[in-house]
Design a binder for these strands. Structure first.
Length: 552
RNA sequence: GCGCCCGUAGCUCAGUUGGAUAGAGCAACGGACUUCUAAUCCGUCGGCCACAGGUUCGAAUCCUGUCGGGCGCACCA
């Protein structure tokens, strides 16, 4: 929030320079305000003089000098302005400005950090989208948590978010699922059966078959159709998936069935539209989409010679529907193994006359589970498969969510089970939760001791003079901007890192200074500082869907 | 062979649209509990940011190439 105020001041100076003919408007927006790593370089710093000087072919320090003169008039905000290095302009913010942050944090409370940068834009976040052929895997879990956190961030920043789960219950996969279920069913009845070669071997299929036997007896033994088995399996598996997601604290606004695209004739319509545009042709009994027109190496089949569409076609039709449904921004969250579909869908979107720039694909890399320093091998076919449910059973929801959000999406994620199960010390989840619990504990202690923190407006916040205190206040002030950029960049891991840093600052402060002391005024000021930190920690934990405990 | 992602401390990873002396956790070693929660803190050790060029006031960040790892490259999804 302070950074934005400074940015605004700087923009005014820049514009003034334009009006006064000191420089042209060209370099507007190209300069940055950042927080220097070195305290000696002030609270904020800008490279504006260097950027302007570069365009104007002038000496950066000369431009910086003009800027310093202008900014020195911003006395409400700035204490001191300095030129440094090759032409940086460093700003030292007045302490009372940092103090003024605290009432805003505490008054806005849960709302502090929320913004309306999204200005009500309609965003569709599509994630998980696993077909109901089995329990959610660890990889799905990462995607689920990532998508959920992104959706939370977007909601927090004034976007109108719809969470959608797209699935297909009609393809070959599902037929095999039905056949696998039937085989297990017949097996239970001691009847002759043949298990499909590429069938689903998981234990859950046996359970579904057992349920079927219980409810239907042997009445299905002569049914030629695979449908009842498929439907029973789908229903059961979907119920499990939803239960798993619910455990993780994830709810969808909408489940979109691929099949509905066929029912509504939208698949045929896409083909017809593309054909009209001359972007589709027939060859070898198949229908091809001229993806080469969109910079790809070769054209792709969208309808097989069997008459069945490939996955590309419904994907394209689905994305067209997203546009038609009026979304301003579509965020697709995919595992990296789906990377091949991205260019095809984008080409399709573009071919149909929509703007592919409105679709952002977040690709996440795989998760490797580590136990005792060794990778846990997983195979869908074999029994070594670990589900997200089992992982939650072992380490709990908070740890699972936190670990999945600790890394940026496009790096591979190593999930260390030994670390995750540790209830103490190294486990970074507890570090932040402990911080929150500690803060809550301070409040309880103050009440116990009869130290009333008083009314915020009357508290002498200028008593907060320690470097650690100003540093903490600075962090609180940075929270709204952090949320904003994490949201727009679709990067929840930045929230995690920010909070770890804040928690570290607090723990350090706690060990160095006492909040409650004989000095009532100072105690009150510090109690409110503690409250401010607690607000941010809690808001942050809420944002990533991790519990903020009052005590541990 | 081609495309995308990654390569930063012994390990796991951060590093905001290029910014000033590259950070954190873990591991290792040494310290701090009669005082608000020691699930904490403080200190020490640890780096040719894979490699080589280029772009410029300035590169871990951008461009090109090389090497190494992951994921794709179907008339599977």
């Amino acid at each position: 929030m302070i950074k934005k105020r400074l940015q605004a001041s700087l923009d005014r100076c820049f514009n003034r320079g334009v009006v006064e003919g000191l420089w042209s408007a060209e370099s507007g927006g190209a300069y940055a305000v950042e927080e220097p790593k070195q305290v000696a370089h002030g609270d904020f710093s800008t490279n504006m003089a260097m950027i302007v000087a570069g365009r104007e072919k002038k000496n950066p320090r000369e431009i910086a000098g003009i800027l310093v003169g202008m900014m020195a008039e911003e006395t409400a905000l700035v204490d001191k302005v300095e030129i440094a290095g090759p032409g940086f302009v460093n700003f030292f913010i007045k302490p009372e400005v940092w103090h003024s942050v605290l009432p805003e944090v505490c008054t806005q409370d849960e709302k502090f950090g929320l913004s309306d940068v999204g200005s009500g834009r309609k965003v569709l976040v599509e994630f998980v989208s696993a077909n109901p052929t089995g329990p959610l895997s660890i990889g799905h879990g990462r995607q689920a948590v990532l998508g959920d956190a992104i959706a939370r961030l977007l909601s927090a920043t004034g976007h109108q978010v719809t969470r959608e789960y797209y699935y297909n219950d009609a393809g070959r996969q599902m037929r095999v699922l039905g056949e696998s279920t039937r085989a297990r069913y017949l097996e239970l009845l001691d009847l002759e059966h043949q298990f499909p070669e590429d069938g689903y071997q998981g234990e859950y299929i046996r359970e579904i078959a057992a349920e079927l036997k219980k409810s239907q007896g042997d009445s299905l033994k002569d049914v030629a159709e695979v449908t009842p088995f498929k439907e029973a399996a789908e229903k059961s598996i979907f119920a499990d998936i939803e239960a798993t997601l619910q455990r993780l604290g994830i709810e969808f606004d909408n489940y979109y069935n691929e099949h509905s695209l066929y029912d509504a004739g939208l698949i045929d319509d896409v083909v017809a539209t593309l054909r009209d545009k001359g972007l589709v042709y027939d060859q070898d009994d198949a229908v091809w989409f001229k993806t080469t027109e969109f910079g790809q190496e070769k054209d792709r089949v969208i309808i097989k010679s069997t008459g069945e569409p490939t996955y590309r076609l419904p994907d394209i039709a689905y994305h067209r529907e997203k546009f038609k449904r009026g979304f301003d921004w579509m965020v697709d969250i995919f595992g990296s193994d789906h990377i091949a579909t991205v260019p095809d869908v984008m080409a399709g979107v573009q071919a149909l006359g929509y703007d592919p720039a409105k679709v952002t694909v977040v690709l996440h890399q795989f998760v490797t589970l580590m136990r005792e320093g060794k990778q846990v091998k997983m195979s869908t076919r074999k029994a070594t498969f670990i589900t997200i449910d089992e992982l939650v059973d072992e380490v709990g929801v908070d740890v699972v969510r936190f670990f999945f959000l600790m890394r940026k999406a496009d790096s591979q994620l190593e999930f260390d089970l030994n670390l995750a199960t540790q209830q103490s010390q190294e486990n970074p989840v507890y570090y932040m939760q402990y911080g929150h619990a500690r803060l809550a504990s301070i409040n309880r202690k103050a009440i116990e001791k009869g130290v009333d923190r008083g009314v915020l407006a009357d508290i002498p916040l200028h008593r907060l003079v320690e470097p650690e205190e100003l540093h903490l206040l600075k962090a609180l002030a940075a929270w709204p901007e952090l949320v904003e950029s994490a949201a727009l960049g679709l990067e929840p891991h930045r929230v995690v890192f920010f909070m770890q840093d804040l928690a570290a600052q607090f723990h350090s402060y706690y060990n160095k200074h006492r909040v409650i002391s004989d000095d009532l005024e100072l105690s009150q000021a510090r109690l409110w500082l503690a409250e401010g930190i607690r607000v941010i920690l809690r808001n942050g934990l809420n944002l990533i869907g991790v519990d903020a405990p009052e005590s541990m």
